[in-house]
Design a binder for these strands. Structure first.
Lengths: 121, 121
DNA sequence: TGACTATATAACTATATGGTTATATATTAA
DNA sequence: TTAATATATAACCATATAGTTATATAGTCA
């Protein structure tokens, strides 16, 4: 029985890991952010993300596979919308953590500020 | 200025993505789970995770770099403890999502149950 | 100082991943 | 049926990642 539970936990861990992995890429985070206010088609997402259509399509495919977005074909366009809004809760929690870290870590903060300075020229 | 804000958002996204990436690996999730009740040294984590000491050490190094764990040398042992308990909130949220997905998806559920059956022999 | 234990790191390997270019596929209209 | 637009996928490439084996490094004790 203990072996049963152990195996089930491994499968659960794999699912959890995959879920986090879907969120572990800036381009995908951008796409998900673009979908927060409502569905968009691939062309729109391509423009908003600044990546190639092929790349966006590839990322969307993964997000759909993990179940974070849903795909809906309409005419010649394909629309994607959020299937799992809890990801925004996750992102907010992480943003909060990273934000408070930035406050705590003066060296990192100085680096970020110097990045800003570079664009003031 | 818009370019400044955009650049800062890219940096934030990168940090967020890295945070999720730290959680996107079953072995690392196991290690973090083992630390939930309190600190442990590398040997203990090695036994609990079922991986090699070198591998565990490597994962711990990454977790420390992202700021999820803290390292403390004591005698010949090195202890690691959780620096950012919010990861357990994240995991619970994701578990909840995946759990309700399992309830929704009969085919996947049947697969998991058949996994259990295999161990009843 | 040498021996021992615990841990980190180097070097390697197989596989995965993100991005790209080209093109296959799907839908629609004339 | 052909042409046009939108999207998905194949194939490729460079880089990253997880795991491994070997060994360097750190701390302690006699």
């Amino acid at each position: 029985m203990a072996s049963n539970m152990e195996k089930l936990n491994d499968i659960a861990l794999e699912h959890i890991a995959q879920y986090f992995q879907a969120l572990s890429e800036p381009t995908r985070l951008k796409i998900l952010h673009s979908l927060q206010d409502g569905e968009r088609n691939v062309s729109e997402l391509t423009e908003l993300s600044g990546c190639t259509q092929a790349n966006v399509s590839k990322h969307l495919s993964l997000l759909a596979k993990i179940g974070l977005v849903k795909r809906e074909s309409r005419g010649t366009s394909v629309y994607y919308n959020i299937a799992d809004p809890s990801i925004y809760t996750l992102c907010e929690l992480v943003c909060g953590q990273i934000g408070s870290r930035l406050a705590d870590e003066a060296p990192l903060r100085a680096m970020l500020l110097s990045s800003l300075d570079k664009f003031n020229t």
